[in-house]
């Protein structure tokens, strides 16, 4: 922080800080020192004390093994490309299906009541099931009906399972966004003669989707992690690849490598979602 705005705020152009500014500066210095001190203490405790634990050497050899890490990391990175690919083809489908389901739940015409009921049932069911269960049921179950290749591929049905589950969450988020748009916006649109469909498309949805962008962003971060669940039905993505290395070397270090790769993607994404949320809160104030 520069002190120029402070002077301005105090209505004083001289360099001398006001009594209040001096007090606040003192307070800030003090809290900074406490924060730094406690951080150093915690880091020291971890770095010094953990290796003193009797099992540390075994844990280090098993989880933080440099040799194993170097040998497996390139393979893991390669396998992660499959996670990214699965994410990339699932995400747009989830966005579209989620939007459609959200719209289903908002239709008002009585003739379309079944659609509305379907939307409610859909979100209830798929939000109520563990993702892995859906992946098993859809990934093994549907191809088991006797579909010919390539239509029985676990990539197709596993991805569909992810899409089905995540679309339910996205639909709920979008619906909450639609509900958050004040009735007066719909009134204004109606008074101009806009149809209900146009009102939804041009007035309500753009605002709703913008309002819930951070929440959806968090869902997509979760999706990037849950892509790993597809490994249960065959695809050798990073989680499975790490498991293979673990099994061959009887060593958990590949999992740590996989964790690092996930974090390299998810931490920046999470930070970005927080930033979006923060920006939005500021705008609404």
């Amino acid at each position: 922080m520069t002190d120029a705005p402070l002077r301005g705020a105090a209505g004083d152009t001289s360099a001398a800080p006001t009594r209040r500014q001096a007090y606040e500066a003192r307070l800030k210095r003090r809290s900074n020192m406490i924060a730094a001190g406690s951080t150093i203490a915690v880091v020291l405790a971890v770095v010094v004390l953990v290796p003193l634990a009797p099992g540390w050497e075994a844990v280090q050899r098993s989880f933080f093994n440099g040799e194993v890490f170097a040998a497996t990391f390139p393979g893991l990175l390669n396998a992660f490309m499959l996670d990214v690919a699965i994410f990339l083809w699932c995400a747009p489908a989830i966005a579209i299906l989620g939007l459609l389901i959200a719209l289903c739940r908002d239709v008002r015409a009585p003739a379309l009541f079944p659609l509305r009921m379907f939307g409610a049932l859909y979100t209830d069911i798929f939000r109520g099931l563990p993702v892995i269960l859906v992946i098993y049921l859809v990934g093994f179950g549907v191809p088991g009906l006797g579909l010919p290749r390539p239509w029985n591929s676990p990539y197709i049905w596993g991805s569909l399972a992810l899409i089905l589950v995540y679309a339910a969450y996205v639909a709920e988020v979008i619906r909450s966004g639609i509900d958050s748009i004040h009735q007066s916006q719909r009134s204004a649109a109606a008074s101009l003669g806009l149809s209900e469909a146009d009102t939804m498309r041009f007035v309500v949805l753009p605002q709703a989707i913008r309002n819930v962008a951070p929440a959806n962003m968090n869902l997509f971060i979760a999706l990037q992690k849950d892509v790993a669940l597809l490994s249960f039905i065959g695809p050798v993505e990073i989680f499975r690849q790490a498991g293979v290395y673990k099994s061959l070397m009887a060593n958990f270090t590949p999992y740590v490598g996989a964790a690092l790769i996930f974090l390299a993607i998810t931490i920046p994404a999470t930070r970005y979602a927080d930033y979006l949320l923060h920006k939005q809160r500021r705008r609404q104030r």
Binding site: P143, G144, N152, S153, P154, I233
Partner: peptide, 21 residues
């Protein structure tokens, strides 16, 4: 083609039954 890998025998046989491998 890349092999499919599974967590246990049961899943391997399920995939075989589903015609995926």
């Amino acid at each position: 083609r890349d092999a499919m890998l599974y967590g246990d025998n049961v899943d391997v046989t399920a995939a075989m039954q589903a015609g995926q491998i």
